[in-house]
């Protein structure tokens, strides 16, 4: 298990490095940062000055290494637009996004897993079809549209919840529902097929032959094995949520990383853009890594090779 964890951690680090390289390269090549920095009515000389000042004239690999060395020391540069260190900015914004992510994940799991189990218990019945319909509609619904619909219902028709901001827990209710609903179908369908597969196995027949109660058979013997593939998908979904937060945080004006990403792109705030994209990628890498480790820990065949 230790060796497995180390291997996975090394792999995750490698992926992280590659991603940082790609992000850096793409963002620097996509347009000339010096032009954006120098402002609208800058002369050619001004631009050249900015270029030398910020080191944009150096070869890309050299710039990357310089940036990486600083980044590893916690210095991500200063935001052009907000005019404060990017690391400070991230410190303010990350908790909001992580809170939203955690709440949505819990919401998605709590709604998807029971529904998946129920559907698997009675396959091809009305109940099963109801769950499937729910999943398909949830998947087909664009997140921003669903978000706007919620705002119409809970802010305009029945003014129960605040429209935008991130100050109180009420502000998180609608975003959580939207993001959670988006992640729910994949988890539910995998739970259902996982349960169906497991319920048909020989060891479930053994459990029944031992006289175990249906509840024990279902929850102890079946679900435990059925969630193993589900956890991997939950890890990926958690990553997608981070990406999706750009849209949702903009819709609900949540002051998180997603909104920051939007703002920094709007103003071509290069240092900030780089940091946000990287951070979102890292969160993705970390959740996937965590899912891998949890999987291994749940499955004795991996835990004890």
């Amino acid at each position: 298990m230790l060796i497995y964890t180390i291997k996975r951690a090394l792999l995750a680090t490698l992926v992280a490095l590659t991603v940082s390289m790609l992000t850096f390269g793409l963002l620097h090549l996509s347009s000339d940062p010096a032009v954006a920095l120098a402002g609208e009515d800058a002369t050619e000389e001004d631009i050249q000055m900015v270029r030398v000042d910020y080191g944009f004239d150096k070869p890309l690999p050299v710039q990357y290494l310089a940036w990486l060395t600083k980044a590893l020391q916690g210095d991500l540069g200063t935001s052009f637009y907000f005019n404060i260190p990017v690391s400070k900015l991230l410190q303010q914004r990350l908790p909001v996004t992580l809170t939203l992510g955690a709440c949505s994940l819990v919401f998605a799991i709590l709604s998807a897993v029971p529904l998946g189990v129920l559907a698997a218990m009675r396959p091809n019945t009305k109940l099963d079809r109801f769950c499937l319909t729910l999943a398909v509609s949830a998947q087909a619904m664009p997140a921003f549209w669903f978000g706007l619909m919620l705002i119409v219902v809970f802010c305009l028709w029945f003014p129960l919840l605040p429209v935008s901001g991130s100050d109180t827990w009420q502000h998180f209710v609608m975003p959580t529902i939207v993001v959670g609903t988006n992640a729910m179908p994949a988890i539910m369908r995998l739970t259902r097929t996982g349960m169906l597969d497991v319920l048909a196995t020989d060891y479930i027949r053994t459990a029944r032959a031992k006289g175990l109660r249906p509840k024990t058979v279902l929850l102890k013997h079946a679900l435990r094995n059925a969630v193993i593939p589900v956890i991997a998908v939950i890890g990926v979904q958690a990553g997608y949520m981070m990406g999706g937060s750009v849209i949702i945080e903009t819709v609900f004006g949540l002051n998180g990383l997603g909104l920051l990403a939007y703002e920094s792109i709007m103003y071509f705030d290069l240092a900030c853009m780089e940091a946000v994209v990287l951070l979102l990628c890292f969160v993705f890498i970390i959740t996937t890594f965590a899912a891998d480790i949890m999987n291994a820990w749940l499955d004795p065949r991996i835990r004890i090779g």
């Binding site: 020989d202 060891y203 032959a209 031992k210 006289g211 094995n225 499955d299």
Partner: peptide, 23 residues
């Protein structure tokens, strides 16, 4: 279910898959 595994037990053909891998 009170009888199964209690007064009457069963042994299956497939020992490789008849035990739960997680316990």
């Amino acid at each position: 279910s009170d009888i199964r595994g209690n007064k009457m037990s069963m042994i299956f053909q497939e020992p490789m898959t008849s035990l739960n891998p997680s316990y």
